[in-house]
Every structure is written in structure tokens, then in C-alpha cells.
Amino acid sequence: MTYRYDVITLFPEMFGVLTTCGVTRRAHERGIWQLQTWNPRQFASDRYKTIDDRPYGGGPGMVMLAQPLAQAIDAAQHDQRVAGLPAGRVIYLSPQGRRLDHARVVSLLAEPSLVLLCGRYEGVDERLLNTVVDEEISLGDFVLSGGEIAAMALLDALIRQMPDVLNDAASAAQDSFADVTTGGLLDCPHYTRPEVYAGQAVPPVLLSGNHADIARWRRQQALLSTLSKRPDILARAREAGQLTQADERFLALQSSAIKPNP
């Protein structure tokens, strides 16, 4: 299966990092995923290539016009259909959207094509959102200068979950949030050479060769990390019945010594 992503953006050059660096580049070169960018200025109706205007009712900043964005989206979806793919759902990267998480990333992998809309300025005309946008996605409760960085983050998260992208498929399956068998806990700490660095030694259990002890230690460290950094995730795993009796006994011994982050 080949995935195709079309991005509506005023700054298509920003997305070059995905096709020229790291695992996303290698996957792109192997044809696992494809990228097409569309600059809404190409669809502007005046000779000045205007893509924004002042907001009705006054106020600071500018608002992106609906017409050039809508035509860019139409062109992207038409191109997807010509390529034999379904016209992709339109996702608007916005701080007002649903916060992106691993579960949503995985669910989006079921769709071979998507159209990502990157806003700028104060946002886009609300009527465009009402008529052509299927979903809004946010990286979190903060504001970026535009949707490009959020779109690249979403694409990177999608691509690394695709089959045969990573050298070891277990790498993605064992990421923080990813391993549903553990309740989506944070990942355990990792170590590599040298055995001693900055006065800190690698935990002896990792050098023991005892795989059962190593697995137990990693599970316990994942529990500790989640308890300390993201107790909300630990609570969800407990509510879902994904913590074992051994997990609960370990946490009962440790929780009094751990001060959760505010």
C-alpha cells in the first residue's frame, strides 16, 4: 500500500525536510509514501495573488480567504482521484482541534490519502471550515505561527508507523504510548556504550543476560516513569484493567517516594 499526502501551504519548501532527511526520506525514496504540496497563491483570483484580507468586525491580523484554499483543496483531491486513490479527508491543523495522540495516528493509517490544510495569520474563513474541512487536529494547547510544523509532526508520526519503514518493526510497537499491551505506558530508560558515563553506570540487570529479569526491570521502569511524568496515563491504564497484580504491588511500594510532576 502506498500512502499519499497532499498539503495546502504557503510555504511548501518547509516540507522538504521530510523527503530529504532520516527515515521519512528513505521511506519516500522507496515509494511507501508520496507528498504533493499546493500553494493557495496559485489559485488566487487577482493579479496580486492575494490570499488574505482584514477580518469583518475589525480586530488584529488577517484572515485567509476561503476561495483560494477551497480551489487548492479541490485540485489536490482531483489529483488523488486521478492517481487511483480516494479523495482524502481534509484535516485542518489548528490549536482549536482535537489534540493528536497515538490512537488517532494509528486510525489515520487506515486512510491511503489525506489533505492537510495549514493555516496562517489569524486563521481561515470559518465558512471554509464549515464546508470542506472534515476534522481539526492540534498538537496541544499552544499557538504556532502556522500549521506547517504541526502537519510535519503528524506526517512524521504517520510515516514511522507504516510497515517496513523502521529497520526493526518492534521499535515503533514499543514506543511510548504505542504498546497497547502495556496500557500505553511511557517507554523505559535506554542505555548504550560506554558502561560508565559521567560517573553513572548502566544498571547491572541490563548486563546480566537474564531476559526475564530485564523484561521485569523494563516494565517496572516504565511504570515509574509514567507515574512520575504522566500519572494520567497510569490512571487510564488502571481503569482499563491493563495493570497486573505485580504492577500494583510494585507501585504500592514506590508511589510514596515519587512526587508527580505538577
Rank of each mutant, 00 (worst) to 15 (best):
A157V: 06
Q254V: 06
R219K: 03
G241S: 09
L223F: 06
R120E: 03
L108A: 04
P12F: 10
Q67M: 11
S176G: 11
N167G: 15
E195G: 01
Y92K: 06
P260Y: 06
L253H: 10
D232A: 14
H78V: 04
V205S: 12
Y92T: 11
E13K: 08
A153Q: 11
D52P: 09
A103F: 06
A240L: 14
N167Q: 11
R249G: 00
I73K: 00
A75T: 11
T131L: 12
P112S: 05
L116W: 07
D168P: 02
D164C: 02
E239M: 10
G57K: 02
A72V: 04
P163T: 00
E148C: 07
G199T: 08
R193P: 03
G209Q: 10
T19D: 12
T37D: 03
L154V: 11
G57W: 01
V106F: 02
L243N: 06
N39L: 04
A44H: 04
T24G: 12
D52F: 07
R160P: 08
H28W: 12
E248N: 01
R160D: 12
E136K: 13
D213P: 05
F11D: 02
W38L: 14
S113K: 02
N261I: 05
Q80D: 07
A240D: 14
Q71Y: 02
L185G: 03
T226H: 08
Q42H: 13
L117E: 10
P60D: 13
R47E: 13
F142T: 00
Q77H: 07
V196I: 12
L185F: 04
M162I: 08
I91V: 15
G140W: 07
L185A: 05
Q242T: 01
A83W: 06
R47H: 12
F43P: 01
R236S: 13
A66D: 03
C118N: 03
K259A: 14
A150I: 06
T226V: 02
A172E: 07
Y48F: 10
A212I: 13
S208W: 08
P203W: 12
V133A: 07
Q34Y: 01
L35D: 11
D141W: 15
E13L: 05
Y197T: 14
A222H: 02
E111F: 04
I233L: 15
A212V: 13
T226E: 09
L35T: 08
D156R: 06
S228Y: 05
V196M: 06
Q36P: 00
E122I: 07
V165Y: 11
A66G: 05
R249F: 00
C188V: 01
F43Y: 15
L65M: 15
W33I: 12
G209C: 12
Q42P: 01
Y3A: 02
G97Q: 11
L186E: 10
D6L: 04
L18I: 06
V115R: 00
A110F: 02
T9W: 02
V205G: 09
R99C: 07
A172I: 00
I137M: 08
E148P: 10
L251P: 03
R120A: 02
P40W: 10
D134L: 10
L108W: 15
C21F: 07
E148H: 06
P189V: 03
T50Q: 08
N167S: 14
A252G: 12
W217M: 00
R25W: 02
I8H: 03
V82R: 13
T20Q: 15
D164W: 00
H190W: 03
D101V: 05
A178Q: 05
